[in-house]
Amino acid sequence: MKYFDPHVHMTSRTTDDYTAMASAGIRVIVEPAFWLGQPRTEVGSFIDYFNSLLGWERFRASQFGIRHFCTLGLNPKEANNPRLAEGVIDLLPRYLQKDGVVAVGEVGFDDQTAAEERVFICQVELAREFGLPVLIHTPHRDKKKGTLRSISVVRDLKFPEERVLIDHNNEETLPLVLDTGCWAGHSVYPNTKMDEQRMAKLVKEYGSKRIIVNSAADWGVSDPLKVPKTAAVMREAGISEAMIEKIMWSNPADFFAQSDNLSLADIDRRPNINQTELFEGNSVLRGQTPVVD
């Protein structure tokens, strides 16, 4: 089966991960812009980061037969730095028009401060202006309230709910999101957030409509194979192939296709690998024989 991981931070992962993901059937990934584990102090750091998501990382993925898309935005943690926030918001209109940008994100709440809310609202407005969906991060702490506040922001702005993906849900927040028109993402982690068994149980209870699963793998303890691994657990739990395919492929594809920047026909074909290609003179290879399909 082919898989779509709609939330994975590949800049923090290795080429071994790409190899493993490709052989597990992962064909398409979306990499949301997020924070780097420690705060950036200059707007210029965001320019370089956005450029690397659009450039080198997309190229790296392509070398393993994986299509790479990204979402761009200012994450809620760094929204609390007023100097940065203003500068990054000014940058976004240029970047949101670039090829392969399939949503504004991750945006939303972390500590749930007034500054976070301002930057969040501003970015939802940018999504409307540039015709993009929105990927909303929900906070680790005080998650239920953070989820409800995120839904309020979307509703107050009358942003179309079917163009919103609310991420990192759990048992407490999923029913709240499904009560809206928004899509519900789940990050399957080794220890925190969601796990495979609980995810299968949620699907049995709530079905597959607007349900999305991702690995959210990053620089922390995480696993970029969690999408296929969760599918395997769902299969063992007796969930049908059709339903698994909807959750692990069609749902994320349909959601991000709303950006008009991801073509369902294109992603259906596995891209040809040509490891003789270079990106600005650089190759992912270190003396290996290039693979060419």
Partner: peptide, 8 residues
């Protein structure tokens, strides 16, 4: 307060 956002 910003320091509280660290992962370290």
């Amino acid at each position: 307060t910003d320091a509280c956002r660290t992962n370290i």
